[in-house]
Simulated assay, not measured.
Amino acid sequence: MTETPEEQGWATAKTLAEALPYIQRYDRETVVIKYGGHAMGEESVARLFAADAVLLKLLGLHPVVVHGGGPQISRMLEKAGVKSTFIDGLRVTDEATMEVAEMVLSGAINKEIANWITLAGAEADVRGVGLSGKDARLITVRKVERTKIDPGSQIEQSIDLGYVGEPTRIDPQLIQGLISADHDYIPVIAPIGVSAEGQTFNINADTVAGALAGALKAKRMLLLTDVTGVLGADGELIREMSIAQARDAIATGVASGGMIPKLETAIAAVESGVEAVVILDGRRPHAMLVELFTEHGAGTLITR
């Protein structure tokens, strides 16, 4: 039976009233959102994400967006005739690849997300601000060092991933200024950093989100991806995990593939002061709102 417009109105009012305790819980709290390359999807999905980010700001939260862009980088490299090489899931980034990665991440994707947020928030003057880790030396990095056991000789060998970095220092002053109560800005950050010597590096976006969430002492970090969350051995969604349970899921193989670095990022973020991290499906409309403002949430919650 179809609801009448009046019945729909009463249902909406009931939903808003039930959300009040959660709105109060997150009032003036920082929420770092990792918006993944696979979760970005089509323009309609991006617009819904932008509108939800604006709503978070208007409800008193301080959303900070960190975005990825792996699939988009791969497409652009393919168009440019640059071959991608991966080692243990990490893209080997030479000079040509780094140039394309920065152009895609800090340019096209970053400014597009910031623009969608500005358009969605036009009536309330909420604006997206596109940045990268190079701005105001937000993210200082060092070159990632990896080793691998050679299967033939069983000797540990060094792996050169090129211009791939990991954060050594986050300077949150610029972000704190933008998200202060006096401003209606939503920072949108591309995962590009700079070394102490001034060299540009590509950084894993999950890692950036976790490091930034820790530096900002965020109430929540939301990892928006293309899966519903962490699935148990029975294939069912695990709604809550402690750090110990997350480590156990990695050790026993319950978590595998791309879920392992996400759990590792979640563990590191919680240990650095973030109250909780949630892994959820960013392709589902309003997933962030369901997670933050309803009793059961929308993904897997990882806490201390």
Rank of each mutant, 00 (worst) to 15 (best):
H183I: 01
H183N: 11
D184F: 09
D184Y: 06
I186D: 06
P187Y: 07
P187G: 08
P187M: 07
V188T: 03
V188K: 01
I189C: 05
A190D: 08
A190G: 08
P191E: 10
G193S: 11
G193V: 01
G193L: 09
V194W: 02
V194C: 06
V194F: 02
A196E: 13
G198S: 12
G198Q: 11
G198P: 11
G198M: 13
Q199W: 11
F201A: 04
N202R: 03
I203P: 01
N204V: 02
A205K: 06
A205P: 10
D206V: 01
D206Y: 05
T207G: 02
T207I: 15
T207W: 00
T207P: 13
V208M: 13
A209N: 06
A209F: 14
A209I: 04
G210V: 05
A211F: 00
L212T: 02
L212P: 02
L212M: 10
G214Q: 07
A215Y: 12
L216Q: 13
A218Y: 09
A218T: 09
K219D: 09
K219N: 05
R220D: 06
L222G: 09
L223H: 03
L224C: 10
L224A: 13
L224T: 07
L224S: 08
T225W: 14
T225Y: 11
D226Y: 04
D226H: 05
D226G: 03
V227I: 14
V227T: 14
T228F: 02
T228E: 14
G229Q: 11
G229K: 09
G229D: 12
L231G: 01
L231D: 02
G232A: 15
G232E: 14
D234P: 09
D234K: 07
G235A: 10
L237F: 07
I238H: 09
I238M: 10
R239E: 07
E240D: 15
M241F: 00
S242E: 00
S242G: 03
A244H: 02
Q245A: 02
A246N: 04
A246T: 00
R247E: 15
R247W: 05
D248V: 00
D248P: 01
D248N: 08
A249W: 03
A249R: 05
I250V: 15
I250H: 12
I250T: 04
A251G: 13
A251T: 15
A251M: 14
T252A: 12
T252P: 07
T252R: 08
T252C: 14
T252M: 11
G253D: 06
S256V: 10
G258F: 10
